[in-house]
């Protein structure tokens, strides 16, 4: 019997199920403002910029807010290695907020009254 390739499997929720242990979510702050400490590492850790860079962002801030804050504080050049031509995070730029990896710029970042944002560019290319 000929079966359409895309009809052999249907309705499986295999990949939509969540992992058994999710890293703990930290409740959002009620204070309205969050003290964000940004830690640039590696090539982003320009000796002219003191680490951490302190930003004050609104509750439920996104990574985009962090980027905008960094641009205002350190200049557009600082973002050069982090963003691609379309203004999106390049794939080898890794951002962790309070130890959790954040992949999308528009993703609201869960945090407490204070947040630590770590940014590093990993090695882009590797063969072999």
């Amino acid at each position: 019997m000929e079966v359409r390739w895309d009809a052999a499997v249907s309705g499986s929720r295999f990949w939509s199920e969540q992992p058994p242990v999710e890293p703990p979510m930290i409740a959002a702050s009620n204070h309205g403002w969050i003290d964000v400490r940004v830690w640039p590492f590696g090539i982003l850790a320009d000796s002219r910029i003191e680490r951490p860079i302190m930003l004050e962002l609104g509750d439920g801030f996104t990574l985009r807010d962090v980027i905008n804050g960094l641009e205002a504080r350190c200049g557009a050049e600082f973002l050069d290695g982090m963003l691609d031509g379309k203004g999106e995070l390049i794939s080898h730029c890794r951002v962790f907020v309070d130890g959790r990896m954040i992949e999308r710029l528009e993703q609201p970042v869960p945090s407490g009254p204070q947040a630590d944002v770590e940014i590093i560019l990993l090695v882009a290319t590797e063969g072999g």
Binding site: F41, G42, I43, I120, L121, L122, V123, A124
Partner: peptide, 9 residues
Amino acid sequence: AAAFGTPNF
């Protein structure tokens, strides 16, 4: 290499 800040790997 990443920590040092070089893309040349």
